[in-house]
Write a protein that binds this DNA or RNA. Structure first.
Lengths: 184, 184
DNA sequence: GACAATACGGAGTGTGCACTCCGCTTGTCA
DNA sequence: TGACAAGCGGAGTGCACACTCCGTATTGTC
């Protein structure tokens, strides 16, 4: 991920910028300013822009990071497929509630399809697809829904979670959604 | 709504601005520029700002308008309570799909509660509450959900719809959601 | 330790946009 | 129909913010 031919200070600063960006965008969403990120990282703005040519690129970098982490930890071959699907879904929704930038991402990924970083997007869609299929095969999820509907519901849940402060309420709403997905 | 002591041209321009704002914000969301609204309305920017002191005020004005229209047309005493609830819910989601500005509104109204124009917000919440209660009394909707969960689900559906171009997909996803709300 | 090569900081630049101000126009009313 | 208040247009202002540039500092190498 980080080219090894990079000077030590450069590598260190790149890491700092990414961490700061994750925090700042997580708190204020994509409208947060690049200057705020630089300040939080303890570097000059010039440094931020050397590592990431545009604000958009920086934003995408942290999104890719989070998605990669999610995909890595997806319980693709857990013993209980129904629980695996539900927990993966719920985990993404939780992430959206905690980090503003994430809900948008899920929305765009799920629906627009394009977006840069198509690889990670494809991976997460595949992971969800696998979990869905397994849960359907196990008879836990109705067989007439496809990945497409699941993604729309996921995106909606993420965006709603992003703005719902009450965690218990979030959980109850999600439970209703899962009931809709459950096999009769 | 429009003070009668207003000169004829002022009243006419106010209407034009509102119509243009509805179109422009509907297409591009709240980030659309005020200048674009003025251009579309065929008036100078000064005129826009005389009628609405800030961009925010203009935005809120069109939101209030739409909400009022929705509340007016809510089928509060329809014969079929289940269908009434569903159609009202679906209608709001459809509106969100058509008009970008609307999904945000629903999200904010449903969850943050404050927001200016609290009256209309309150009205729409009440309308949904009535429809929900009636559908529950009729045994069509599970009795353990409250207005709060319904609003979270509604807000999520609105935001997802806002970004889902495929109308059929939108409809199928909504159907899954309704199944979750249905009484067993 | 010297000397490139690489990276850093942050003042400066350009742009877009909300909002203001004022000379001109139009509607109203006697 | 004349006078004047109410309203209009749009150039101008200030500000926020993405992005650039270059003199200075740090790193790696022989």
């Amino acid at each position: 991920m980080t080219p090894p031919g990079m000077r030590a200070d450069a590598r260190r600063n790149r890491e700092r910028v990414l961490a700061a960006a994750e925090a700042v965008f997580g708190e204020h969403g994509a409208t947060a300013s690049t200057e705020e990120v630089a300040r939080r990282a303890g570097v000059g703005i010039g440094t931020v822009f050397r590592h990431f040519p545009t604000k958009q690129a920086l934003y995408e970098a942290i999104v890719v990071r989070r998605l990669s982490r999610l995909v890595e930890e997806a319980p693709l071959d857990a013993d209980d497929p129904a629980e695996a699907f539900r927990s993966f879904f719920a985990r993404i929704v939780d992430e959206s509630a905690a980090k503003k930038a994430f809900a948008d991402t899920m929305a765009v990924l799920g629906i627009d399809v394009k977006k840069s970083a198509p690889d990670v997007g494809e991976e997460i869609r595949r992971a969800l697809g696998v979990l869905l299929e397994r849960a359907q095969a196990a008879g836990a999820i109705r067989s007439d829904v496809t990945q497409a509907e699941v993604f729309v519901l996921l995106a909606g849940a993420c965006m709603a979670a992003d703005r719902t402060a009450d965690a218990a309420l979030r959980k109850r709403s999600l439970a209703v959604l899962f009931d809709g997905l459950a096999a009769r």
